[in-house]
Design a binder for these strands. Sequence first.
DNA 1: AAAAAACCGTTGCCGTGGCAACAAAGGATC
DNA 2: GATCCTTTGTTGCCACGGCAACGGTTTTTT
Lengths: 229, 229
Amino acid sequence: MQEYHALLKRTTLFAGIDDAGLDRLLSCLAPSCRNFSKGEALLHAGQSAGQVGVVVAGAIEAYRIAPDGTRILVSRMGPGGVFGDVLGGSSLTSPVTVVATEPVSVLFFAYHQLLVQCRNNCPAHTQLLQNLVRTISDKYFVLSRRVDLLLLKNLRAKVSSFLLSEAKRTGTATFTVPFTRAQLAEYLNCDRSALSRELSRMQAEGLIETYKSSFKLLDSTTLAHLSSQ
Amino acid sequence: MQEYHALLKRTTLFAGIDDAGLDRLLSCLAPSCRNFSKGEALLHAGQSAGQVGVVVAGAIEAYRIAPDGTRILVSRMGPGGVFGDVLGGSSLTSPVTVVATEPVSVLFFAYHQLLVQCRNNCPAHTQLLQNLVRTISDKYFVLSRRVDLLLLKNLRAKVSSFLLSEAKRTGTATFTVPFTRAQLAEYLNCDRSALSRELSRMQAEGLIETYKSSFKLLDSTTLAHLSSQ
DNA sequence: AAAAAACCGTTGCCGTGGCAACAAAGGATC
DNA sequence: GATCCTTTGTTGCCACGGCAACGGTTTTTT
């Protein structure tokens, strides 16, 4: 378990907790570590979990399964990713299916143990609770950001808004997005060909340069103007 | 404070807590009660709160203020409504402005007191924490539902989906929605005239009956079919 | 290395829905 | 009761973007 200390301290769930606190917490919470092979499901849509998972190695994807069977990508996570938190340990059923995209190791924490202050009265537990609330509200704001994007009135505004947020996230005006065209179109809720068309136009107008999934923003001020209308 | 017991027990934040537990909790948490007059702001966008508010009388609305100054209705709450919870007591700033739509009384709970198990070790505190997580994840799912709605490909699907969810919520096929046409159009992210047009068509086709903000669903099975495409 | 599959750009066609403008019907205020 | 303002329905116009189809390129499979 020691081996995960450095990683755990960088997760949102255990941020701001020192080594001693983390030690005591881990011995109290006694998470179980499980390994999954590529393609295996960690959580099925419709299940209720009662556990919070923390990815310590590998990567996972969360899909929403539409009634017609098509998979819609909701989220991707690498080491440090936290899932199952939004279910609140209640009997709520998961809206998503979580699948390993490569061999993955996950620590599972029982939800009721996260909520109950143990008899050892670990001082780090308060921080943990605050972090738990924080991980959930973070996801709330990610979703809120998505709503903002979907509310934009035309495709160019959506594209501009998305590109600017990616530039901000990566901290540079030249970046690669981890999506195929089709996935990006799905995220922006538009047709793939329409997205290609719009990107071509924007390139022709000198707003951006793009090849495959790499982008270079040439005129951020105009993009910012476009993204809010 | 006694006078609020019955109300508080029906809120999501204090659900499942008995009178004795509620008594001890309230004396520990020592919420402050504040009154606001109609139109007064309880929380400004951009502020960070550090408090959770529970409406005990009156009603409030949460607005998002667009860069061009227009107000977008995000949420409405009556007695029992909880707000400020999603900010997680952290330094996150509120994305919305909360305004009293009529004279309102609110109990404010300090966030850090909610998270810290007090030295009295109230047994109800664990339930409270679980409830807090639950109120936040509830809001997550409300937003998630909104995303589902916005992802639908055409207006008829959005309208059908919305009407069905309202019917489910009210438990009857004849109901009134608390929105003007313009507000409903805003929620569905479409033009007001387009919404009126679509409702007219649906009425002409015998799917619904509608007058102003009252609706009657005539063919729920067809509506259900429309709402998922 | 060949074959298959996935991915991407492009283009013609056309329908949904945005926009603007107007009329009618309450509701509120005086 | 007259006036003003808000809310709603309606309709013509047309642009944005969905759809389908095709070809070229890259990647994966065997």
